[in-house]
């Protein structure tokens, strides 16, 4: 509502409604950004998220399409040769061989859960993206915990077995 005093020459007709274009612009940008976020999420969800033991078993987890596979890096299976990282990934006693061009990064290591994006070709999972999962367990690195860590490592190798 504009109640500024009118000057003598000004028309006494109805004043134009003043709009806050900055706020309107922000709303439009927020709506567009919301649309982009939802679209990206839905596009990403097209790649099925499968556990290793579901590959070729669960609907949508067929090897002939691009999928995301989740499992634990098998102990003593990681090999890095000429910029290629190879390892076995296990879940519920099922295992899959993964080949990835590059260094997975993050806290990638044996016995840690990872998510590999790619396709299954001739029994090998050809991955072009690796993401490392970390659990919701936080254990302090100290001597007292070394025994526990070793126990976990044994557990990991027995799971992989």
């Amino acid at each position: 509502m504009d109640l500024t005093p009118r000057t003598a020459g000004e028309s006494a007709g109805p004043a134009k409604k003043k709009r806050n274009w900055i706020a309107i612009s922000f709303i439009v940008v927020a709506l567009l950004a919301g649309g982009v976020v939802v679209t990206k999420f839905l596009t990403s969800a097209i790649d099925y998220y499968c556990n290793v033991d579901e590959v070729g078993v669960r609907s949508g987890c067929n090897g002939d399409r691009r999928i995301r596979v989740q499992g634990i890096v098998k102990q003593h299976s990681v090999k890095s040769v000429d910029g290629t990282t190879e390892f076995d990934m296990t879940y519920n006693t099922k295992s899959i061989h993964v080949v990835y061009q590059g260094d997975p990064g993050g806290i990638f290591q044996e016995c840690i859960p990872v998510v590999a994006h790619g396709r299954l070709l001739n029994g090998t999972f050809e991955s072009d993206r690796i993401e490392v999962k970390h659990s919701n367990q936080y254990i302090e690195k100290n001597k007292g915990r070394l025994a526990e860590a070793n126990k976990e490592a044994v557990k990991c190798s027995s799971q992989a077995g």
Binding site: K40, R129, H134
Partner: peptide, 18 residues
């Protein structure tokens, strides 16, 4: 530093961005 990527379109990250 942990996953190896700044961003993924995963449900938690996407819903927080939304």
């Amino acid at each position: 530093l942990t996953w190896g990527t700044y961003w993924v379109w995963d449900a938690r990250l996407t819903s927080t961005a939304f």
